[in-house]
Design a protein around this nucleic acid. Structure first.
Lengths: 184, 184
DNA sequence: GATTTCATTAACAGATCGGTCCACATTCAT
DNA sequence: ATGAATGTGGACCGATCTGTTAATGAAATC
């Protein structure tokens, strides 16, 4: 299997897991939908868990790249970029395939805290917070670490509310909260 | 099976589903751990889904009762009670069995938005928002509905962050955000 | 062109899934 | 005591789960 086909397999598996959930998506379905036989899949991933981890790595890369780029496109200064994150999220919420945060869902399905999947999901959030903190520091805010974590809470909350109730408004509400936060 | 045993079954099933997840907890395990045979379980619940729904009803009742009572115990005025919610959440986060929000996890595992389980999870959040809104109105805040939804976002975000990283600090961070919000 | 190598596939394990059937134990009215 | 009714548990059902094996096809090397 070429590197291309491997990447394509991960890409398609991501869509399946995102749409149907991890436990609810069997490897037979993955094989059928990707057109790659189970034997070939298991040649490259020793277990389903390894495939899930590869999918989460791809998701982390895609999501952070998209979010960071969109934040830069929507605002100039670091402070405005932090606020623009919620505009970017609002765009995501109204996309057709939006189904909430894949890492929250992964964390919900694999509960043991030591589990590699949970560790990776947490790593994704840590990278986000680090980025927020850098922006907050560049914006000259007094407690960048604290602000970054508060913004993470607002982001996660907005995603959860949007996923459960199709309430695109949650992005705007979280942004309004962030504005009062950054002005305080 | 008496009404008592039925309630006991739901109570024990709740712990299993909360700890292990819904799909990952089979009915055989439920039978084994509750000491009730599958035949008896299926006499009272036609499907696993019905049992899950009963569990979520119990969880909704328990959680809201606990939260509302704790908010009242911790603060006198409606405005302070809204803030005290985050102190109550902080107490929850450090409890031994804390594993995040059961409704977020249910919603993550049963994705179809029309699914009865999702509808019920959303109903839980709606009842919370209604309560927040009532308190916000009693506190004389200018836009109670908006504030209530912003507080919901903060609550969900704090829970998600706490569940993924054992960061009890998230309750305090969310509270600090809420304070700036209510003062603005 | 023969042979080695590798990838792919269908079929198959063994376990577990949600859900059912049946034989039996218990209770109750007669 | 006896018959009907009810509740219970363990064995069982087909489907599906993750993961493997054996046979096949194609491509590459000599």
């Amino acid at each position: 299997m070429s590197q291309n086909k491997r990447a394509e397999l991960i890409r398609k598996a991501l869509l399946l897991f995102y749409r149907n959930g991890f436990h609810a998506t069997g490897m037979d379905l993955v094989a059928k939908e990707t057109g790659v036989s189970k034997t070939s899949i298991y040649k490259h991933f020793r277990t389903k868990e390894e495939l899930v981890l590869a999918v989460l790595r791809l998701r982390d890369e895609n999501f952070r790249n998209w979010l960071y780029r969109r934040m830069e496109e929507l605002a100039e200064t670091p402070g405005d970029q932090l606020l623009a994150m919620f505009d970017a999220l609002g765009e995501w919420f109204v996309e057709d395939g939006f189904k909430g945060c894949m890492f929250i869902k992964a964390s919900a399905e694999f509960q043991e805290r030591e589990h590699a999947i949970n560790v990776q999901a947490y790593e994704h959030k840590r990278l986000l917070v680090d980025h927020f903190e850098k922006l907050a520091r560049d914006a000259g805010l007094s407690d960048p670490h604290r602000v970054a974590r508060q913004l993470l809470i607002l982001k996660e909350g907005a995603i959860v509310v949007a996923a459960m109730s199709h309430a695109e408004a949650s992005a705007a509400e979280a942004k309004a909260t962030a504005i009062t936060l950054l002005r305080s």
